[in-house]
Simulated assay, not measured.
Amino acid sequence: MTALTTFLLLVIVFGLLALVLFWAFGIDRRAVPDYTGDDFGLLTEVTAVPTSEAAVVLADRLRTARIKVTVVRRGGLHRLMVFPADAPDAKLLLRDPG
């Protein structure tokens, strides 16, 4: 084998390896993670209160109604987060003073 043949064989092997790796891993099309802390995925904010005590009371009210709730502290407020399907019921329940 000559040096030219060896060189061409290496170029072909590395070219095929590059194609296989590109096919396997390709361009990453996943969503870019949010490092600001403002993205809560599927959760939607239904209300925000200034104290943790108020957040606990409202979260207990939602949990009693079998609505899953998460309390997040952000920017000095306690935000109550629920799934979008539960948001209308949660807002209606939290609007009721009783």
Score class of each variant (00 low, 15 high):
Leu77Met: 06
Asp89Lys: 10
Asp96Trp: 12
Asp86Gly: 02
Ala3Trp: 01
Val11Glu: 06
Arg73Pro: 09
Val49Tyr: 07
Gly26Thr: 07
Pro84Lys: 14
Val20Met: 00
Phe83Met: 07
Pro88Cys: 07
Thr2Pro: 04
Ile12Leu: 15
Trp23Asp: 14
Thr44Phe: 00
Thr47Arg: 15
Pro97Asn: 14
Leu8Arg: 12
Glu45His: 10
Val57Pro: 00
Gly98Asp: 12
Arg63Gly: 11
Arg95Val: 01
Val72Ser: 06
Gly76Met: 03
Arg73Met: 08
Met81Glu: 02
Ala59Gly: 11
Ala18His: 03
Ala55Glu: 02
Tyr35Cys: 03
Thr5Gly: 04
Leu77Glu: 01
Pro84Ile: 04
Asp89Cys: 01
Leu17Thr: 01
Gly37Trp: 05
Asp39Gln: 12
Val32Gln: 01
Arg74Met: 03
Asp28Gly: 04
Ala87Asp: 11
Thr51Arg: 14
Leu62Glu: 09
Phe40Cys: 06
Arg74Asn: 03
Val49Ser: 07
Ala3Ile: 05
Ile27Phe: 13
Val82Cys: 06
Arg61Phe: 10
Arg29Ala: 10
Thr51Gly: 11
Ile12Asn: 08
Ile27Leu: 13
Asp38Ala: 12
Ala65Phe: 02
Pro97Gly: 11
Pro97Leu: 13
Gly75Asp: 05
Met1Leu: 02
Gly26His: 08
Thr51Val: 08
Gly75Trp: 00
Val69Thr: 13
Ala31Val: 09
Leu92Gln: 15
Phe7Asp: 00
Thr44Gln: 14
Leu92Ile: 10
Val57Gly: 09
Leu17Lys: 00
Ala24Gly: 04
Leu8Ala: 15
Asp34Thr: 07
Arg61Ile: 07
Gly37Ile: 02
Ala48Arg: 13
Ala18Thr: 02
Pro50Cys: 06
Ala31Ser: 07
Val49Arg: 05
Pro97Cys: 11
Ile27His: 14
Arg30His: 13
Asp60Glu: 15
Pro33Val: 01
Ala55Ser: 06
Arg95His: 10
Val69Gly: 08
Val13Asp: 07
Asp89Gln: 10
